[in-house]
């Protein structure tokens, strides 16, 4: 295996990761606003938002095309075939479920946002269900 450490340490790798996340978030933002435009009866706006959101899939995945040459930056694992990729997804989902969302929920509770805390709890449970489904499929 060629040495990928320089690539992983580079600012470019970090930038790819940021672009991946930003483009993914932006695509969903477009979809969100498209629903609002729909409600206002602005069909052309809604259609354009949807079209741009769908085109955004290539922007998101194009970033991952490069990231995967080294590793999935969020799990730290190599990207391979489905059986390997399941491991990567499991790690991310398990981390979100086990740490990220419980911490977020606790913070929200302490800051006086109980409804948002409950939202994070809900996400945590969704993640737990994902983990179970993935484990079942991988026969573990």
């Amino acid at each position: 295996m060629a040495d990928d450490s320089e690539f992983v340490k580079s600012r470019t790798f970090e930038n790819l990761r940021a672009a991946f996340a930003e483009e993914a978030a932006l695509a969903y933002r477009y979809l969100y606003f498209s629903v609002l435009a729909d409600f206002e009866g602005l069909d052309r706006h809604s259609a354009l938002f949807k079209e741009i959101a769908e085109g955004g899939e290539d922007f998101v995945q194009g970033c991952f095309d490069f990231l995967k040459l080294a590793r999935d930056p969020d799990s730290g694992l190599a990207v391979g075939g489905t059986l390997k990729n399941m491991e990567s997804l499991l790690q991310i989902e398990a981390r979100q479920q086990g740490r990220t969302y419980p911490e977020m929920a606790q913070a929200a509770r302490m800051e006086g946002f109980p409804d948002i805390a409950s939202w994070f709890d809900t996400l945590e449970k969704a993640k737990r269900a994902h983990v179970q489904k993935l484990r079942k499929l991988s026969g573990a």
């Binding site: 040495d3 320089e6 690539f7």
Partner: peptide, 15 residues
């Protein structure tokens, strides 16, 4: 498969 990947990897990893 690894050898085929290496051609692509080289571009990024060997400056």
């Amino acid at each position: 498969r690894l050898a085929a990947r290496r051609a692509a990897d080289k571009i990024y990893f060997q400056q």
